[in-house]
Simulated scan of single mutants.
Amino acid sequence: MIETSDTHVFPVRWQRDQIILIDQRRLPNEYSVVAIHRCEDVVRAIRSRIVQGSSALGIAAAYGIYLGACEINTEDRSAFLERLEAICETLKNVRPDKENLRWAVVRMLRQAQTAEGSVAEVRTHLLAAAQAIQAEDFLTCHAIGDHGVAALPDSPAQLTLYTHCNHGALATSGYGTSLGVVRSAWREGRLAGVYAGETRPNFQGSRLTAWECVQEKIPVTIVTDSMAAYCIQQGLIHAVLVGADRIAANGDTINKIGTYSLALAAKAHNVPFFVAAPLSTVDFALESGQDISVSEGPAEAIYSVGEMVTAPEGARYYNPSADVTPANLITAFITEQGAIAPSQLIHCRVGVQP
C-alpha cells in the first residue's frame, strides 16, 4: 500500500504560489505530485488526465484562472478582462463534457467582472473565489455522503454497494460524491463492502477507486465491467452508486461509459440506482439527454493495455467516453440538498447557478 501523509486525499492543493496536483495517471503504482505555476500547464494537466473528475477539474481550472490573471501584464481593467475571458474560454473548452468545469469557469469570470477595485484587487478576489470553490465542494461532498446514507436501503444492516469509475476524493476536493456515500456509510457502520467495476478502457475503478478504498481500509472487491450484471443478478449488490459528468434538466445523466448498462441491470433486478452529484452538475439549459453529444477516446485505449496489444491489426474501434442514462432508470439524485427524484430536479434550479 502506498502511504500518504494522512487519511485524506487531496487531488488539488494551493500551496503559496502554485497548484499541487496528484498525478492520477501514475496511480496505483506510484504516488507522485506535480507542481504547476502557469495557466498553460493547468490546461495541459487537464488535457493529459493528470487531474480527473468533474469537481476536481473545476477546482484546478479555478486556480488556473488565477494563475492566468497573474500572467496578464496590464493594469488597464478593460484589457485585463478581455484577456481573462480568452483564458476562461480556453479552460472551459478543454473538457466540454464536464459541467462542473464549465460552472467553475463561469463563476470565476463573473467574480472578475463584478469585483470592484484595481486589477491587483481583482486578482486577489479571484484567488479567494478559487479557494471558496474548493472549500464549498468539500462541504458539499460531505453533505452528499450523509444524505446518501439516509437514502440507502434500510436492510440489511450492512450493505454491499457497487461503484463505477472514480467519483471519490481524487475526483473532487477530497471526499467524493458516490464514493463519499461509501465513506459515510463506512463511518456509520452501514457498509459491508464495495464492489468497484474496473471501468474500461482507462481503469479508473480499479486504479483509483480501489486505491482510495485500500488507503482507508474499506473492503473493496474489483470486478471487470462485464461481471456487473451477474453480480447484481446473484443478489450480491444492494445498491448501485455512480457519479455524473453532466445532468440535463429532466434528469438524463451523462457519465462514464458503462453507466447506462449498469442502470439497466439494476432496474431489471429491482436494485436502487443512485446518481451522487452536486447540483452544480445539473445543466438546466440542457432539456434532455437527446441534446448531449458524446466524445470519443483514442483507439489505442481499446487495443492496448500498457505495452501489450490486445487486438489484431485491421480491426476497427469505437471508443465513446460516456453514455446517457435516461432519468426513468434513476432512483434518485443524491445531492447536497438531499435525495431528489428525477421529476423534482427542475425545482432545484434556483440558487445553484454560478
Rank of each mutant, 00 (worst) to 15 (best):
I46M: 15
I59N: 10
I50E: 09
I65T: 09
T74I: 02
A35K: 15
G68E: 10
R38G: 01
L81Y: 03
H37P: 00
L81C: 09
S78Y: 03
E40W: 00
I50R: 05
V51Q: 07
N73F: 11
R49C: 01
S78C: 04
C70A: 15
A35H: 14
R77P: 02
I59A: 12
L67E: 04
E40T: 01
S48T: 05
Y31I: 01
R44P: 00
I59H: 07
I36S: 04
E82N: 15
G64K: 08
L67W: 02
S78H: 08
T74L: 08
V42W: 00
Y66A: 11
G64N: 10
R49E: 07
V51E: 07
G53R: 02
I59D: 12
E71F: 07
S32D: 03
G64F: 03
A60R: 04
V51M: 09
R77G: 06
E82A: 15
V34Y: 00
Y66E: 09
A60E: 04
A56I: 01
G58S: 13
L57M: 14
L81Q: 10
I65C: 11
V33C: 05
N73E: 15
V51I: 11
Y66W: 15
L81S: 10
L67Q: 05
V42M: 07
Y31W: 14
Y31E: 01
E30W: 00
V42I: 14
Y66H: 14
Y66S: 09
C39Y: 09
R49P: 00
E30I: 01
A60T: 11
L81M: 09
S54Y: 03
A62L: 12
I36R: 02
A69H: 11
V42R: 07
E75I: 11
R44D: 12
L81N: 08
I65D: 06
I59L: 14
R77L: 09
E75A: 14
A45K: 02
T74W: 03
C70H: 10
E30F: 01
C39V: 11
A62T: 03
I50Q: 12
F80D: 04
R38D: 12
C39W: 05
Y66K: 07
A60G: 12
G68C: 13
G58N: 12
S32R: 05
I36A: 02
Y66P: 03
H37D: 03
S55T: 12
Y66Q: 07
A35F: 06
G53F: 01
L57H: 08
V42D: 05
D41R: 10
A69L: 15
S55N: 15
L67H: 02
G58T: 06
S32W: 00
S54R: 06
V43G: 10
R47C: 03
A56K: 03
A62D: 11
F80A: 11
S55K: 13
V51W: 01
V43I: 14
I65K: 07
I50L: 13
A62C: 13
A62W: 03
R44Q: 12
D41N: 12
I65E: 08
G58W: 05
E40A: 04
N73A: 15
